[in-house]
Design a protein around this nucleic acid. Structure first.
Lengths: 325, 325
DNA sequence: TATTGCATTGAAACGCATTTCATAAATTAT
DNA sequence: ATAATTTATGAAATGCGTTTCAATGCAATA
């Protein structure tokens, strides 16, 4: 593979001039410019981008840390990030973690090693203190409530969103309410649990452990929830479900068990994925695409301005009334 | 940021020795090893990975070219790739193309520039000849039928799969059959159309243009198809649908229009996504996760053995009978 | 004791593009 | 016509880790 020095020699100019031509800088005579392009053509030259990265100290790559990709929640965020990245000439490096702290650390190390110019964290397990150790290494944007102003974040206030759902159900007369969630750890989940408890406390009800369904991510999990509900002596009259996918599973598997929404079980879920519309599920719209877009914009903004002032942006949610309540 | 030379100076050894320690090579006295680690600690040293990439001529990154990520079909493939990549210590760089040739070329250029060690193409628009120009630059694996032995591919024989679906419907007595597809260009789509035509010809039916629904990707598109069907004087009795998502949309939106499966419209779709089970849709299982895994393994195999012998691996499909026919 | 061989270690070359600094030539301004 | 700019161009430094090659030291075999 030819390098820039060979081009310089063949074109009869210096490497600096070749670099100028290649990067479209002014102050190069037209004839030399032509000579360089001809040499490039003749030797079939292509830049070694790793040398460029080394010299520039930049890669124009942003890392995306997430537990997994094949879930609508995360792929929607990634789509948003990707859209913006594309527009700005950046690429995305995926760090799939499965919530493994070791893998999360690896992603952070990659920021330090300059593999990526910035990092977007869609979800995490790693603690706050560890995260802070990498603040100097490049912009990090969290897609969750940072509760902390010295880091960048774009987030959905899941306390508020859950409260919105709870109050809606309570307003419809429900008092025996449970919920489904992807995992119980994680800041989003904790916020949601707090909203759940607080809302119940207001109507003098106590949270019931057995009405909280963990590990609910996909349609299949709805089946599990339906089965569990069917074998309960006392069951909730309503569920708040953290994902439309799970709610869809509950609706569909519920039908086959004679557990119909909204009469036997009212449902309010989250995302406003097309599936919720098709199934007439009342849902709380989450601007996931927008969250991804804003996250990238924040990283990008830091990169071009050089400032890293912490800022947190809360995105609005909206209840979409349909027929599952 | 400290570099390897400063570490060497502080530890009182040569840079070669530092490199040996850092990379865990033998033949370094224990005391020097310790001195190096201490210097690393003291100066808070981290490798600049771009220098490593430049020196090694490898990045341990594999590129993934796809039109978009937020569709279950592609996110399943990416999940498979990612799983294997993780196991082998590789990372994934996303090239989202939206089927734009310019963007596809960019991904290929990144292979040439050594940004990535290999490339997996999930779907493409770019033509065969262009693709071949990058063969020398590193392993490229196609996730579609290459019909050509001098490139690597893992694929689902969509001709065969579509034929399987068609014959199943025909066996059930259907003769007026249409189909839904994501796009009409693309090799997979062409194969499917060929199977459709061939199957109809066998029973002396002619393909009907207005029973072929293009741009069908998501649940929403099912709505469009239902609306179109409802306003037809003569409508098909069965549809082959290239994605479970679309089939789900057709089933659900069909219900609200009094168009019920299987009586008013029989459906056979593809993927065997959980949603098809929940809706009892007869589907043809596509091993997407496996396809992703095998694709990565092929790239990886080329990288470690250095051989690039073209090979094509066909993955099996399987009809899952349920109640939409 | 002479010799083969492994353990250790460092100097220097290598991968390659970007960028700064100094210089020279060509214009424009005074 | 002279000073002040602007245009053009190359040498050399810079970013930084890996790897090869030669050399030295020390132990084991002949």
């Amino acid at each position: 593979m030819a390098n820039i020095r060979e081009i310089a020699k063949l074109a009869g100019v210096s490497v600096a001039t070749v670099s100028r031509v290649l990067n479209d800088y002014p102050y190069v005579k037209e004839e030399k410019r032509k000579a360089v392009w001809e040499a490039v053509e003749k030797l079939n030259y292509t830049k070694n981008i790793n040398a460029v990265h080394l010299a520039k100290g930049r890669t124009y790559i942003v890392g995306v840390m997430l537990p997994y990709v094949n879930h609508p929640y995360f792929s929607a965020i990634v789509e948003g990030i990707s859209e913006e990245a594309l527009r700005c000439g950046y690429h995305l490096l995926l760090f799939q973690t499965n919530y493994d702290v070791q893998k999360e650390l690896e992603a952070l190390e990659m920021l330090r090693m300059k593999q990526v110019d910035g990092l977007i964290i869609c979800s995490r397990t790693i603690n706050w203190e560890t995260l802070e150790m990498y603040k100097e290494d490049g912009p990090i944007v969290l897609c969750e409530d940072a509760k902390n102003d010295d880091v960048l974040s774009v987030y959905i206030d899941h306390y508020e969103a859950f409260l919105l759902g709870m109050n809606y159900l309570i307003g419809k007369g429900h008092r025996k309410i449970g919920y489904c969630i992807g995992r119980t750890t994680g800041i989003n989940s904790q916020n949601r649990h707090a909203a759940y408890s607080d809302a119940l406390r207001k109507i003098d009800e106590t949270p019931r452990e057995d009405w909280i369904f963990d590990h609910c991510l996909d349609i299949d999990d709805g089946k599990r929830v339906v089965n569990a509900l069917c074998s309960m002596k006392e069951r909730p009259t309503a569920l708040l479900v953290s994902s439309d996918q799970v709610a869809a599973g509950i609706v569909l598997w519920g039908q086959s068990k004679g557990l119909n929404a909204p009469d036997d079980l009212a449902l309010v879920s989250f995302d406003n994925h097309p599936i919720s519309e098709a199934l007439s599920i009342t849902t709380i719209d989450l601007p996931l695409l927008l969250m991804g877009q804003r996250a990238f914009q924040m990283v990008h903004n830091c990169l071009i301005t050089g400032t890293m002032a912490g800022q947190a942006e809360k995105l609005p949610v909206r209840l979409v009334e349909r027929r599952s309540v």
